[in-house]
Design a protein around this nucleic acid. Structure first.
Length: 419
DNA sequence: TCTGGGGTCCTAGGACCC
DNA sequence: TCTGGGGTCCTAGGACCC
């Protein structure tokens, strides 16, 4: 049996752990630059605030219902996620961390255990040790565990936040209950097409022929169908090193000057390179893009992008920044108002398996330099040592007016308890 | 004024090989 | 009437996830 464990309204719940007076009150968490709603407490959902709501369009609603608004605090969420995962790990022989707030557990060889008892214990222990509410779904396949989890989340009182799909009867009942657009792996496009052929529920989907599903939804669709039939087909996945690393941001205002954009692009590449070294890889190529604000029909639009193949694999910040700056020169056009840019590094190889080239290679002296740089920045805080080409004035420029303290990752932000 | 960020996988079609 | 057959690799675009 598999379990899918999912934290309820995760970001909102994290904020609530340290502000217990907000229990029962509507909370929303905003994206970077305080742009859009990316998490909502149940109370906020009930008021009718949709996912992705644009913050400035909902200001009045926030005021009217006294919605507590938070800027995203990813340091807090990442740390809370880590705590939850480390507790879950103790319950099953195998775990796959699927996202910041979800994990699959595989209970291989645990046939003697009473899953309901185990599930209840997960819920109460995570709640007690971290303050985060979770839901648990058990089933014979990953896709069905997702379904079971949804039921647990939808009916927390009846299920005690833990639902099990094991019998054929419970499987059919669950699939007939689940709308097709809510099935894991069925997005908007597939839902539309499925609707056209009369598929309304997950059960209807399982009645389609493999051939039709293969033709219209590729092998992924076929795997999903079998998983929903109760034949475990979607496997547990190992934690693989990343295949690409992205750093991109919308700017808090439009940027016009090359130098301004360059500063940002350099910083994005610095951040990518740090993550790249953390997984002990070098990259062979990167993609650089910049764009104007596509929401503004009144302004002239431009999207520039370029794929750069490096002459040699590298993870040196100095080298990568150099190539990024050169690449930016080729796509930057004067006269546009830029709203967003980003760097995606890819084609990784392990650091210790770099093939030397005949004419040009990564500067070997950079290796030690980067090691020292990473050590200093780890010890003394991010961006303590910067390149001259980065912006020297401030680290964060994003609009983040309602950010909560980093309660669990910064000593200055620890909560005080007065007895 | 104001609209997120970071990933993965699959497929079709073109270019190329012998 | 008829124009070989069997491959690989790469890329862009589309779909999905959180």
């Amino acid at each position: 049996m598999y379990a899918l464990v999912d934290c309820n309204n995760f970001y909102a719940s994290c904020e609530r752990v340290f502000r217990p007076e907000l229990i029962g009150k509507p909370i929303v968490v905003l994206s970077n630059n305080d742009g859009a709603v990316i998490a909502r407490s149940n109370e906020a959902k009930e008021i009718g605030i949709p996912m992705g709501a644009v913050a400035f369009q909902y200001e009045q609603m926030f005021r009217e219902h006294q919605v507590e608004v938070f800027s995203a605090n990813f340091a807090l969420y990442g740390d809370m996620s880590h705590r939850v995962m480390s507790i879950l790990q103790q319950f099953a022989p195998e775990m796959e961390i699927y996202s910041i707030d979800e994990a699959f557990l595989l209970f291989k060889g645990c046939e003697k255990f009473d899953l309901k008892v185990l599930g209840d214990k997960m819920v109460s222990q995570v709640r007690q040790w971290t303050g985060i509410p979770i839901s648990v779904g058990f089933a014979p396949s990953k896709a069905l565990a997702k379904v079971a989890n949804r039921i647990a989340k939808k009916y927390p009182v009846q299920t005690n936040s833990c639902h099990i799909i094991q019998s054929e009867e419970s499987r059919l009942k669950a699939l007939k209950w689940l709308k097709i657009e809510d099935v894991w792996g069925v997005g908007r496009q597939h839902a539309k097409r499925l609707c056209h052929v009369g598929v309304k529920t997950a059960f209807d989907f399982t009645q389609l022929s493999d051939a039709w599903v293969r033709r219209n939804m590729s092998v992924l669709g076929v795997r999903l169908k079998h998983d929903l039939l109760g034949i475990p087909t979607i496997q547990m996945e190992e934690v693989n090193p990343k295949k690409s690393i992205t750093t991109s941001r919308s700017f808090e205002r439009n940027l016009v000057e090359f130098e301004e954009v360059k500063e940002r692009v350099v910083t994005f590449m610095v951040m990518c390179a740090e993550k790249l070294r953390k997984q002990n890889s070098c990259c062979n190529s990167f993609y650089l893009f910049l764009k104007t604000n596509s929401h503004r029909q009144d302004l002239e639009q431009y999207r520039g992008a370029t794929l750069v193949n490096l002459p040699y694999p590298s993870n040196s910040t100095l080298e990568l920044v150099h190539f990024a700056t050169e690449a930016l020169k080729t796509i930057f056009r004067k006269g546009f108002r830029y709203k967003k840019a980003g760097v995606i590094i890819m084609d990784f190889i392990p650091e210790d398996k770099v093939q030397l080239t005949l004419f040009e290679n990564s500067n070997p002296r950079h290796h030690e330099l980067m090691k020292t740089l990473d050590e200093v920045n780890t010890k003394l805080g991010q961006q303590k040592i910067k390149l001259a080409s980065q912006d020297q004035r401030r680290v964060w420029k994003m609009k983040q007016e309602k950010k909560s303290p980093s309660y669990t990752t910064k000593v200055q932000d620890l909560i005080n308890i007065v007895v």
